[in-house]
């Protein structure tokens, strides 16, 4: 990172987060999952609160009640829709297309809720994206991308990041992502190159048995085992590191081309190798301790990411101004929660 940039700092520690996490877990189980809404608030608050830049931190303001109600509505709607389709199968023709149109709307609601419930230095974030552009970005572009056999995938990636970032504001100050396509293509090619290189090496080693398994109708069980080991080998050595490499390069590209009004330029110099090392050792630590080291792993990752992210400040951070906010419901947020959609800004 350049000298002039001010770094983010993560001040949380594993011990403290372990205590909060394990109590969250226990209460969630004891209440049959109901408490998990409050647990989510505590988790977000912990990670937001502990992320600092220039002595100022982030905060999360949603309440457990809001999140629980949102979740109940989504689960209720899901059950009702299933029952309707079950009772009147023909209604699926109308209901399913309606749902597909509703998804971009829900995504936008989720992003709006999350933004408005987050603040930095007492100023709330906001999200102003419309369902119409979400429809184009999340439904039309992916179809077009598929039509080009995913050769334009980096364009889709950039469009999604642009939609997310350019519609976010800190108070009245907008974020702008203005990035060329090149780094997105570089990320894709780097990931592909890794995957192909690993595939080629494994193929050279296992060539004979691959051919034997593929041409033999009744392969020897041992050969099948080698083949399956090869499959997992490709998955763990080829696919997963390629995915981490891609994520790291895209993250750097996105941050390094994002500016917050006031001349604040974001910086990120995450290294794929370090990220992969953290991911692998985290995985081992968590697996070997029946999950008890998960809080440690999460803190470690947050600390690394914050340590390699910064802002070249264009002026004082005192100048942000918030706006009076209208109420937002947690409905979309709950939907995103349940469907596992990740649309948040990477902090």
């Amino acid at each position: 990172m350049e000298k002039s940039a001010t770094g983010f700092e993560f001040r949380g520690n594993a011990k403290e987060w372990f205590g909060i996490w394990i109590v969250n877990l226990l209460l969630s189980i004891l209440t049959l999952g109901i408490y998990s809404a409050w647990a989510k608030v505590r988790r977000n608050k912990y990670f937001y609160n502990n992320t600092y830049i220039e002595g100022r931190n982030f905060d999360y303001h949603a309440t457990g009640g809001q999140i629980l109600i949102g979740r109940l509505i989504v689960v209720g709607a899901y059950i009702v829709l299933n029952v309707i389709i079950g009772l009147f199968p023909m209604s699926a023709v109308v209901v399913l297309p309606l749902l597909i149109v509703a998804i971009p709307w829900l995504i936008v609601r989720a992003m709006m809720f999350n933004a408005r419930m987050s603040s930095f230095s007492n100023v709330r974030f906001n999200f102003t994206g419309g369902a119409g552009s979400a429809f184009v970005v999340f439904l039309i572009y992916p179809i077009l991308t598929a039509l080009t056999l995913y050769t334009t995938f980096p364009m889709l990636e950039r469009a999604i990041k642009r939609f997310s970032i350019n519609n976010h504001k800190l108070g009245t100050a907008p974020f702008v992502l203005d990035a060329p396509l090149k780094p997105f293509y570089t990320a894709l090619f780097a990931a592909l190159a890794w995957f192909l290189a690993v595939g080629a090496v494994l193929f050279v080693f296992a060539q004979d048995s691959v051919f034997q398994v593929m041409t033999n109708q009744n392969p020897d069980p041992e050969e099948v085992l080698i083949w399956i080991a090869g499959f997992y080998g490709v998955f763990f050595i080829g696919v997963l590191p390629a995915a981490v490499l891609y994520q790291a390069l895209v993250r750097n590209a996105v941050y390094n081309h994002t500016v917050l009004a006031g001349g604040h330029r974001f910086r990120s110099n995450v290294s794929a190798r370090a990220l992969l090392w953290i991911a692998v050792t985290n995985l081992l630590a968590v697996a070997l301790t029946l999950g008890l080291m998960l809080p440690w792993a999460q803190v470690r990752l947050a600390r690394y990411l914050a340590g390699h992210t910064g802002v070249a400040l264009g002026g004082s951070l005192d100048e942000f101004v918030g706006t009076q906010q209208t109420k937002t419901s947690a409905l979309g947020d709950a939907y995103a929660d349940i469907e596992g959609i990740d649309v948040g800004l990477p902090v």
Binding site: K40, R43, L240, V244, A279, V286, L294
Partner: peptide
């Protein structure tokens, strides 16, 4: 589990 990070 909530967010577990990449790989996991």
């Amino acid at each position: 589990a909530g967010e577990t990070g990449p790989l996991m």
